[in-house]
């Protein structure tokens, strides 16, 4: 991201770009584990969406469809709170980081 000179900045230190933090890929923090979505076991309770601190659960056309690993930090709250007997979310080992900022 090119950094502005002082004359290019909005007066009063405002940030006029609502929600532009989406360019900050918190998924790069993930180390060692990530959630895996097993659709067949999913009852669409939305608890994973609810309890994800990093907005990494994909919701498409009213359904949970998996994860956005760009943001998932691998905290495991989703898997922990997944209520089905046969879990629809399991934490799996992750060897390498796939995402790096700026490469998106």
């Amino acid at each position: 991201m090119k950094k502005e000179t002082w004359t290019e900045l909005a007066i009063g230190a405002l940030n006029l770009q609502a929600g532009n933090s989406v360019s900050n890929l918190t998924g790069t923090w993930r180390s060692g584990r990530k959630p895996e979505f097993i659709e067949d076991n999913c009852i669409q309770c939305f608890f994973c969406w609810l309890y994800c601190p990093h907005f990494a659960v994909r919701v498409e056309e009213g359904k949970v469809t998996g994860f956005n690993y760009d943001y998932c930090t691998g905290c495991g709250l989703c898997a922990e709170e997944c209520p089905t007997k046969e879990k629809a979310i399991v934490m799996v080992k992750e060897e390498t980081k796939i995402i790096e900022e700026g490469k998106k």
Binding site: S21, V22, F46, F47, W49, L50, C52, P53, A56, C75
Partner: peptide
């Protein structure tokens, strides 16, 4: 219903820097 809430626009969005497992965004 959570399903309905999940489809509302986020007023706090992804890319914030809160810790792993932080309770604030919840």
């Amino acid at each position: 219903k959570l399903k309905d809430l999940a489809q509302m626009e986020d007023r706090l969005v992804a890319g914030h820097g809160m810790c792993l497992g932080c309770g604030i965004p919840l």
